Amino acid sequence: MSAILKNIKALAPLLDRVLVQRVKAESKTAGGIFLPDSAVKELNEAKVLAVGPGAWDRDGKRMAMSVAAGDKVLIPQYGGSPIKVGEDEYSIFRDHELLAKIKE
């Protein structure tokens, strides 16, 4: 990558792509015991930070995205395009690659 991102807000997904950040797993149990990083499993839950405008269908009309910024979603364990800005890690997925939308 030739340009170094200083802020993730400078990144706008195109077409049907979705920018997400994985939710960090709790490193402390309900009983108050702290777990080491090696024992904490990575979650498949992520928060949607930005979405593209949507892909075009065969008739030339824009298809609506299934998620919006602020939604919580389930993402596949592997896949997506990883992006690192400073110490933070993000991923870009296509809209159809997202597994589910989490309703709260």
Rank of each mutant, 00 (worst) to 15 (best):
G52T: 09
G32S: 07
A50C: 06
L99H: 06
A10Q: 13
D71G: 08
S38K: 13
K28M: 13
A12H: 15
E97L: 08
I83E: 02
D16I: 04
V51W: 13
M63D: 10
K9H: 14
S91Q: 12
K24R: 15
P13I: 07
L14H: 08
F34R: 08
R94Y: 07
A46D: 09
V67A: 07
A10H: 13
S81P: 06
D88L: 06
A100V: 08
G54D: 13
E87P: 00
A39R: 08
L15D: 15
A46T: 05
S27D: 11
P36K: 01
K101M: 00
A12P: 14
A64C: 05
S2R: 12
R58P: 11
M65C: 09
V18D: 01
E42A: 10
G31I: 00
V18L: 11
A55Q: 14
A10R: 02
A64T: 06
V20D: 05
S66Y: 07
G31V: 00
P13A: 03
L99Y: 08
D71Y: 11
E87K: 00
K101N: 02
E26K: 02
K61F: 15
E42S: 09
A64D: 12
D95A: 08
D71I: 01
S27T: 06
G32K: 13
M65I: 05
V18N: 11
D37T: 01
S2P: 00
L49P: 07
W56M: 11
E89V: 03
E87W: 04
D95L: 12
I75P: 01
T29G: 09
P82I: 00
P36S: 05
G86K: 08
K103R: 11
G60L: 12
Q21F: 02
W56L: 10
G79Q: 10
L19I: 03
P53N: 07
S66D: 14
K47F: 08
R62S: 01
L49S: 10
P13N: 04
K84R: 11
K9D: 15
G60V: 09
E26G: 00
L19T: 03
K47S: 07
G52W: 14
S91N: 12
L14R: 10
F93T: 00
P53F: 00
I102N: 07
A69G: 08
Y78G: 06
S2A: 09
I102Y: 09
A25T: 05
V23S: 12
P76A: 04
G52V: 09
G31Y: 03
D16R: 07
K101S: 00
E42L: 02
A39P: 05
S66P: 15
M1A: 06
